[in-house]
């Protein structure tokens, strides 16, 4: 008995150490980036030579970083919007209708996120050339949407399956048409699932670099591409560091929101 207790206490301590080690490995580098963004030394000497806000000021005024940020936000919003629309529609079709090839749809929707980005990138690059579509924001959005759809689709499908069909049947029995049923009954129950999927999609699109490399035009850069391009230019390194630090802070928000939304939806029903 006492041996078991001692063993489990030792086991718990070991687990604690491992957990701490993992957290250190993940978060210490992030902390270093944030600290270095205030480091007076241009070469990031350690310990920091002194505190400065000048890198933040320079980053703020860097037109390259700003336009890249704008492109990234636009691409993220665009890809998320496309994914929300198509993902919801596909989830509806699969969960509420029977049709030939229904089983295959899930596989086809899932595949792009499993494919290596470089394959998707090359394929899209070729396709856009063949179609004669000019590279730019639109092609980036299409590229990102291919792998963003699955998150919305999976979330919406799981929710629709859990809801079952009887809510919609009840609504129609009470006199509501298809659109009214969607607006008043189905969509409100689906909202949190779509929000969670959309937030994850935005985050996914925002830091995508491989597919973007193949679908962006020389003048249209997303933030990750801009960072990648400026990382090894000594003059720009401090600015890149500031941008990275800002992104760490910004990415916490959607992930935290998505988790909260998903958690809320899980509890308090039935």
């Amino acid at each position: 008995m006492s041996g078991a207790v001692a063993g489990s206490a030792r086991g718990r301590r070991a687990l604690g150490v491992v957990t701490a080690a993992v957290l250190v490995v993940v978060y210490v580098p992030l902390a270093v980036v944030v600290i270095n963004s205030f480091n007076r030394s241009r070469t990031f000497g350690w310990p920091p030579a002194g505190f400065t806000l000048s890198w933040w000021a320079r980053a703020w005024h860097s037109t390259g970083a700003r336009s890249a940020l704008a492109t990234s936000v636009e691409a993220g919003l665009g890809a998320t919007a496309v994914a929300l629309l198509l993902g919801t529609m596909a989830a509806f079709a699969v969960s509420r209708y029977r049709f030939f090839g229904r089983e295959t749809v899930s596989f086809l929707v899932l595949l792009p996120i499993a494919l290596p980005g470089i394959v998707t990138g090359i394929a899209l690059n070729n396709a856009f050339r063949v179609l004669g579509l000019p590279f730019g924001l639109l092609t980036i959005i299409i590229g990102h949407a291919t792998f963003c759809i699955v998150l919305v689709y999976n979330n919406a499908l799981a929710r629709l399956r859990r809801l079952g069909g009887s809510l919609e049947e009840a609504s129609m029995d009470l006199g509501a048409g298809v659109l009214q049923t969607f607006r008043f009954v189905t969509f409100p129950q689906l909202r949190s699932a779509l929000l969670a999927g959309g937030l994850l999609d935005f985050a996914l699109s925002f830091d995508e670099i491989i597919v973007t490399t193949f679908t962006a035009a020389p003048g249209v850069q997303t933030l990750p591409l801009w960072i990648f391009g400026n990382l090894f230019r000594p003059n720009q390194a401090p600015v890149v560091n500031v941008v990275a630090a800002a992104l760490i802070v910004l990415s916490v928000v959607p992930v935290w929101l998505a988790q909260r939304v998903a958690g809320d939806a899980g509890g308090g029903r039935f």
Binding site: L167, A170, M172, D173, L174, A176, Q180, P188, Q189, R269
Partner: peptide, 30 residues
């Protein structure tokens, strides 16, 4: 919608995002 039948489901099919009052009022609001 046009049969004039009221249907009650085994698992209630309650609209969980609406109050009891709004659930009952649903057909009339529509």
């Amino acid at each position: 919608q046009r049969r004039g039948v009221g249907f009650v489901f085994q698992h209630y099919a309650a609209f969980k995002h609406m109050t009891v009052e709004r659930n009952v009022a649903f057909g009339l609001s529509i």
